[in-house]
Amino acid sequence: MSGADAEAGSYVEAGEFRRDTNYITTRITADGRDGYPVETGRYRLVAARACPWANRTLIVRRLLGLEPVLSLGLCGPTHDKLSWTFDLDPGGVDPVLGIHRLRDAYLARFPDYPRGITVPALVEVRTGQVVTNDYAQMTLDFATEWTAHHRPGAPQLYPQPLRAEIDEINREVFRDINNGVYRCGFAGSQDAYDAAYARLFAALDRISERLRDRRYLVGDTITEADVRLFTTLVRFDAVYHGHFKCNRGKLTEMPVLWAYARDLFQTPGFGDTIDFGQIKEHYYMVHRDINPTGIVPAGPDLSNWLTPHHREQLGGRPFGEGTPPPPPRPAEQVPALS
């Protein structure tokens, strides 16, 4: 199992994949109660387009318009046993942090850091030290603690009246879908795989039924819950169906979820963060225990992500009273689908 991936520090027990969910829980807040107040230019978001957990932060940063206040460092899609690396930058060095490996930022704060080096991470630019890698809390804080820096028209991704329902959906989606595909892919026994497979598709069936007559998971606008589900669905056919043996059916064969995923993909802030080439390169080349040859499959055909979804017939207002984000900055654009 990859030692530096999002599953870093996780393990297999009695054949079952167990994710290490102990993260650096320091928070960047409006009042700075943990010693790290929200400030323009003070922090750098380090992410990787390949990683579903990091992809959440890229989407939320776009939707809320945090680009002017929170710079972005992107690691390449592959890494070595020590750390994610800045292979996409000239000389393999992040131009702001001046480091080749994300590991350097972790060790700058915790010299004996014992866990996996994961993305996303927020790094304090001045000290070069990691502040947090708690990806689940990170996007919630973007929505609630960084409000002074939201763009005009930013959506309410974690509205107070809906938080309990969003939290409940998020728990199920994480347990059975986001992490469920990994439990299939890294199962160490047939029994563990069979159980994970059944649990994953039972959850997908439940979510599909929920979305049959509603455009979004909670309320009538996009929320944090949709962001979290989308990053797994968008990788399903390209990676999880084959690579992780989640092969009861492809996403394209699940009518409700396929239409829902295309609806989000075609919404500004979602599909324009997705780089399918990096996604496939990461999973198929890094997980050599699953794919020893490192061969990256040529398919699937991706042009169907741009076909009509007709979900607008269900109503709903993608951004509520807000507006879509502007196009990505030129330096942050992803390859267009052909």
Rank of each mutant, 00 (worst) to 15 (best):
A261Q: 11
F265V: 13
Y260G: 11
G242V: 06
D263W: 04
R248L: 11
R248E: 07
C246F: 00
E253W: 02
A259N: 08
Q266S: 10
L264S: 09
G242R: 14
R235Q: 13
L264A: 12
N247M: 02
V256N: 04
A238D: 05
L257W: 03
A259P: 01
Y260A: 11
R248P: 00
R262L: 04
H241D: 00
F236C: 02
T267Y: 03
A261H: 07
C246T: 07
H243L: 15
W258S: 14
K250R: 15
V256G: 03
C246M: 02
R262G: 03
W258T: 05
F244W: 05
R262C: 07
P268T: 08
V239F: 03
A259H: 03
G242S: 13
G249T: 10
M254W: 06
K245M: 00
K245Y: 00
P268E: 01
L264T: 11
P255N: 10
D263F: 04
G249P: 00
P268N: 06
R262T: 03
W258P: 01
V239Q: 05
R235N: 04
A261S: 15
K250Y: 10
E253S: 12
K250Q: 12
K245I: 00
Y240V: 08
D263I: 12
E253D: 14
M254H: 15
L264R: 10
P255C: 09
D263Y: 05
K245A: 05
K245T: 00
T267D: 02
F236P: 01
F244E: 02
C246L: 01
W258D: 14
W258C: 12
V239H: 07
T252C: 15
H241G: 03
E253I: 10
F236N: 08
A261N: 09
G249C: 14
A259E: 04
F265S: 12
E253T: 09
R262S: 04
D263V: 10
F244D: 01
P268V: 11
Y240S: 09
H243A: 10
F236Y: 15
A238P: 00
F265W: 07
L257V: 08
P255H: 11
V239C: 05
Y260N: 12
P255Q: 12
